[in-house]
Nucleic acid binder design. Structure first.
Length: 427
RNA sequence: GGAGAGGUGGCCGAGUGGUCGAAGGCGCUGGACUGGAAUUCCAGUAAUGCCCUCACGGGUAUUCGAGGGUUCGAAUCCCUCCCUCUCCGCCA
């Protein structure tokens, strides 16, 4: 959510910023709505003040034993007037709120302008794709020929966009997650968390997935409404919800390994093959809750933490600064990490690190006590994948494949594989 | 699932229809005392909207788990829901 004060005082400025996203903010309509809200609220407040004053007088009169009947008569018509005014206020407030929740975040000045992913700017490229003197296969061919990856059984169990991993491949998947968790907790100062995978509507509103992107989520019917988390960003960031944090506890650096569930609405026909786009996938997620002045340094640091995963796995990748047309709803600035996939002969997204500044904090009422002012102020929140486990598995399979269809286990994972150094068919 | 008890400020906790944004305590901040500190004493100490003000600040409204209701007036009474705790049952 944007700062309502800024929205009121500088609507043109806000509109100009959002226009870089291709988002059209109707300043005239917004201003008119705001004017209406203001007058309705002042009216209701005035009536309420009147009523309060008179009620107080009645109380005093009663206490001193006077006859309160004439006072009661005076206040007679106030009730219905106030009721009407409050109903009007509730209606206009709901309208304002509804609008506010659907506005995307302002962009940081360093976010490049562009209309779609072709406008993203490559910041750096790390590692060189390995030369293969054979035609590289994609992870589906590799996994299936190893006999460890089964989309047919998954389809029978659940339908499209699910997978079954088995044997050493399932273990490799687990090894990747363990490796990432250990890296971030031991070397990067993150605190591990185990969090709910089912969350409330309010929680998803806090991080910005709702109300606008409900069709991307899985909702569980039942007496209590739950949604499956689309990312651990949701529960981790909401750890700060409705809190006034002491300055000393900042920055909070959380890491969690969770499954993620996405309906992938609107992506029919995209990445239908393989593990790239599934309804269920695992991810190791990083979340920072920081003082406002630290958030851009934190974004660089968090991106470096995600990159370290790929460096240690010796996977070639590049870093993109997402442009205004491709960046997420709640983010002011985002770096995507794209890993090299020989099977697709291109770089594919494996991590996304974003600074949300106060956008989520305002929705969640996540604050800290600023020692300078002594007042509660909104924190900045950041999130980043560190990294997507399923896609990391894809990258390992494709980059470490051998001519004979076997796959070498990266050095840093061998301890997690009980000494297994290579995935062989029929293992 | 059954029975009971609760949810009040940063924290603990009093408050069963009016002068209650809310006693008291803790914590925190400032001041006095001290060579410095502890102790002690004094004072201050919620958020948010709107209006006025260049500003300092002031006014007003809302907020006592959430939402409805009763009433001139609700932290307080009624209804629904959520959450926490205790005991029992069940269970991983």
């Amino acid at each position: 959510m944007l700062d309502p004060k800024l929205l009121r005082s500088e609507p043109a400025l806000v509109a100009a910023n959002l226009a870089r996203r291709g988002f059209v903010l109707d300043v005239g309509a917004l201003t008119a709505l705001e004017e209406r809200r203001k007058s309705v609220q002042v009216h209701a407040d005035t009536l309420r003040a009147e009523r309060n004053a008179r009620s107080k007088a009645i109380g005093k009169a009663k206490a001193s034993g006077e006859d309160v009947a004439p006072l009661l008569a005076e206040v007679d018509s106030l009730g219905s007037q106030l009721e009407q005014a409050e109903a009007a206020l509730a209606a206009v407030s709901a309208e304002v709120e509804g609008l506010a929740l659907t506005l995307p975040n302002l962009l940081h000045e360093s976010t490049p302008t562009g209309s779609d992913e072709t406008g993203n700017v490559e910041v750096r490229r790390v590692g060189v794709p390995r030369h293969m003197d054979f035609t590289p296969r994609d992870h589906v061919a590799l996994g299936e020929s190893l006999g460890m990856l089964d989309f047919e059984r998954a389809a029978a169990i659940s339908g499209a966009r699910f997978s079954v991993l088995s044997g050493p491949l399932a273990r490799l998947h687990r090894a990747l997650a363990q490796f990432m968790l250990d890296l971030h907790t031991q070397d990067h100062g993150y605190r591990e968390a185990y969090v709910p995978y089912m969350v409330s509507r309010q929680t998803l509103t806090g991080t910005g997935q709702l109300p606008k992107f409900e069709e991307d989520l899985f909702r569980i019917p039942g007496e209590t409404e739950y949604f499956l988390i689309p990312t651990a960003e949701v529960p981790l960031t909401n750890l700060a919800r409705d809190q006034i944090l002491e300055a000393a506890v900042l920055p909070m650096k959380w890491v969690a390994h969770t499954p993620c569930f996405r309906a992938e609405a609107g992506s029919h026909g995209r990445d239908t093959r393989g593990l790239i786009r599934q309804h269920q996938f695992d991810k190791v997620e990083l979340v920072n809750v920081v003082r406002p002045e630290d958030s851009y340094a934190a974004l660089e640091a968090m991106t470096a933490c995600a990159e370290e995963v790929l460096k240690r796995l010796e996977l070639p990748y590049r870093v993109l600064a997402l442009c205004s047309g491709d960046i997420g709803f709640g983010s002011t600035k985002t770096y995507d990490l794209e890993v090299w996939l020989p099977g697709q002969d291109k770089y594919r997204e494996i991590s996304s690190c974003s600074n949300c500044e106060t956008f989520q904090a305002r929705r969640m009422q996540a604050r800290w006590r600023n020692p300078q002012t002594g007042k509660p102020e909104l924190v900045h929140t950041l999130n980043g994948s560190g990294v997507a486990v399923g896609r990391a598995l894809v990258a390992v399979l494709e980059n470490y494949q051998q001519a004979d269809g076997s796959v070498v286990v990266p050095d840093v994972l061998q301890n997690y594989m009980g000494g297994v150094k290579q995935l062989q068919p029929s293992a």
